[in-house]
Design a protein around this nucleic acid. Sequence first.
RNA 1: UGGGGUGUCGCCAAGUCGGUAAGGCACUGGGUUUUGAUCCCAGCAUGCGCAGGUUCGAGUCCUGCCACCCCAGCCA
Length: 553
Amino acid sequence: MSDDLRDFIRNRIRADVAAERLPHGVVTRFPPEPNGYLHIGHAKSICLNFGVAEEFDGRTFLRFDDTNPLKEGEEFVEAIRRDVEWLGFRWTGEPTFASDYFRELYHFAERLIERGKAYVCSLTAEEIRASRGTLTEPGTPSPYRDRPTDESLDLFRRMKAGEFPDGAHVLRARIDPASPNVNMRDPVLYRIRHATHHRTGDDWCIYPMYDFTHCICDALEGISHSLCTLEFEDHRPLYDWVLDNIDMNYHPPQIEFSRLGLPFTVMSKRQLTRLVADGHVSGWDDPRMPTLAGLRRRGYRPEAIREFCRRIGVSKADNLVEVEFLEFCVRNDLEGTAPRAMAVLDPLPVTLTNYHGDGETLTGPWHPQRAEMGQRDLAFSRNLYIEREDFSDNPPRKYRRLVPGGMVRLRYGYIIECEEVVRDSAGEVSELRCRYVPESKSGSDTSGLKPKGVIHWVDANSAIAAEVRNFDRLFRVPAPAGDNLAGDLNPNSLHTDHGFIEPAIAASPETRFQFERTGYFVKDSELHHPQRPVFNRIVSLRDSWKPKAQGQG
RNA sequence: UGGGGUGUCGCCAAGUCGGUAAGGCACUGGGUUUUGAUCCCAGCAUGCGCAGGUUCGAGUCCUGCCACCCCAGCCA
């Protein structure tokens, strides 16, 4: 397929394929723990795992890493399945679960004990921590390290049988208490947990740890390349140790890449969970959240997220990708797919003093470069709304919109000239009284006039009132502090406008639109109704116009 | 101070056996345009964390530094 992608992982796979080192072809897996919702960082991993398999005609498993019943649940399993599918990927067969392999895992553990490679340790969690040493000091052997094999085996069986309370014993690998790599200092393989598992119920009261589980599941599923993030690099020796010490003739290589870094947001499940729990956002799918559910509700299309993941690449370097990059991908995707329409978010009434009669119907294309998208009718009459921002009686230099005595073209309509500015008692502009040029109708203009500016507008009589939610970054600092999340929140991350949209928008089955000259918007999946429109701003339009700092109009 | 990683343009990121620094984003000019959008054209690292060394030639090899990230859960 697309061998245009170059990164160290694909290069490695290409070499493995060329050397015919992959008896079962390319097999990858996306292994989330079902304890939260997926976010854009997971999208990077999903696109990598599923993408690589597609490119090399391989397969990808969706495997839930559910070895900790205390934190996991079906709600998350469902949400994750939905998000992966939404992103546009299909896994091989049914999703698998680490819990599917609990029985095999248990047998592998018994064999390990029999070979003297694992033992039951009866130290408390605190004692284990104390004997583990520190980063710079070696640990000391557990007093149970030389417990006879038979005794360990018996204890382990009784642990499984439920004879002991949580924390009474654990199964540990016998590796090296003094290893410079703390992960190798006789790591815990199994712990007692009298908890109900979302899939296996109360079948088990001992649960395997990640390091013991993951590598074995990878091997059992015939994974050809086990891709994970950098923080697991220190665990690779353990991944290899387990597979080297059990009866398994298959050993996938673990390859690590760096996680996606994005400023002005948080990406850890712990922090995202807190935002939801503390009510700082409306839920996991709040449009400001970096979760796939949030981005979906925000209006991002999966195509845009996939393109983003493709463009950022994969490497081992720590990275912080500018949000402008993501926004570029979103605009790029919407540019060719979203129909255009007009909406006035901050309305200023305009009365055409020389326009008489009941009004008329104009037309405008749904997309200026894509005639095949057709066109829609635009009601036009004596009473209109224009954007408050598009009028100024103290314009900055190079201002190309409406000014007192000035002319401007109404998009797909007529040219108007501002004759009078009406103000309310507070001195605020409350209405513009303008003259329209009858012979300047769009498409049959014989006026010869060439106003500099073109502005959008909406017919006051037929426009539909709409709520438009504009979002800004959730946090006001690039790197929100883990301990004081609330304090770093951007108090202005949500700004709601009450404006008017042309009726064709509400009537259209389309959900995403470009409101011309403003941005891309989507009908909110929960709150929108044709009679009571509610839109979310997906992303604003790029705006290269920067008025001179001086005449602040 | 133990172990494991990473350092190529403001950001992301390619750089085969050492051979004379891709591309994208951003930015800056210019053109088209009834969206200050899109589109098009042009510009944008004599430099590859720093310092030495090997070599006809080094981002790519060697040596020594420096900076940053990860690890001491019976979490994943």
